[in-house]
Write a protein that binds this DNA or RNA. Structure first.
Lengths: 146, 146
DNA sequence: AAGAGTTACCCCACATTTCCCCACTTATTA
DNA sequence: TAATAAGTGGGGAAATGTGGGGTAACTCTT
């Protein structure tokens, strides 16, 4: 499982180091390929197989239904397969960098089955946002029996 | 499958480079012909066979039903077959360029079975639009276990 | 019907990006 | 404190994308 936060620098060439403990997870699963996709304000990285299962399901959905198109455009279209270089870095494609507002300090955030890649400022803003709605969360957790 | 985004420049002659990874998909399928068609706010590019299947179905539909006519006018009529030049570019016919508002920075967006061609500003507007109507998509996400 | 102007298509040359490599600095562990 | 691992920076070759010239085909005008 991917857990914990790491702060890494995005270098001038658009490369981002993946924390060793995340790479370990991939290696243990026997496939080091990573898929980078888009979410609302950040990027999401999936192990290849995990992503493949999702993409295959979506590929069988309608090719014309507007809702499916919207879903594909938003969540599927940006997916880019990539592999760490010998130094444990991946190249973030320029459009994804731009979308997620990445430059300089980047937060890598473990989300159990995958991990997210956040611009530092956006990450803090996101946490504030969540904490502002904290009441909703606590009742949600209560419902889950946590 | 076509996946990932690319940003390319539309040059003064109306030519657009097709990303190498998209060209690879076409080559692997053994037919490099591409069909450009119109959609609502963007262009859509299909591998020839993929398009052929759609066009054949539509060709068997009514020649007088107003809905079929409208559909033909909107989605089918603009279809243009084209081939990449030696540099991997296609010429976007001027009416299609105009319709999709293409100039300067263009986004190429992988949609699994085909790919879309967006003006940059429109692409970002489209994403905002989708995100504003997020509720519509939740059923897919639930089905997919996302 | 002929000529001027435009468009499409071929080509080549240059710029940029990507990918692979090595070296250095900083952190962690023994 | 030494030794190892992790992360950062940058060089260089190959692949990819961009710009632009020239010729042939076509259109439009006169």
């Amino acid at each position: 499982m991917f857990t914990g936060w790491s702060i890494h620098a995005l270098d001038a060439k658009g490369r981002l180091a993946i924390p060793a403990r995340f790479r370990d997870v991939l290696r243990d699963e026997g496939d080091e390929r990573l898929v980078l996709t888009t979410s609302e304000r950040c990027l999401v990285a999936y192990p290849y197989n995990e992503w493949r299962a999702i993409a295959d399901k979506v590929s069988r959905l309608s090719r014309v239904d507007p809702k499916v198109l919207a879903f594909r455009r938003y969540f599927i279209s940006g997916a880019t397969e990539s592999l760490c270089d010998k130094q444990g870095r991946v190249l973030i494609p320029q459009p994804l960098r731009e979308l997620a507002g990445l430059d300089g300090q980047v937060y890598l955030v473990g989300m159990q089955h995958n991990f997210e890649i956040w611009d530092k400022d956006r990450w803090y803003a996101e946490r504030e946002q969540i904490s502002a709605n904290f009441g909703d969360l606590s009742s949600f957790m209560a419902d889950l029996g946590i």
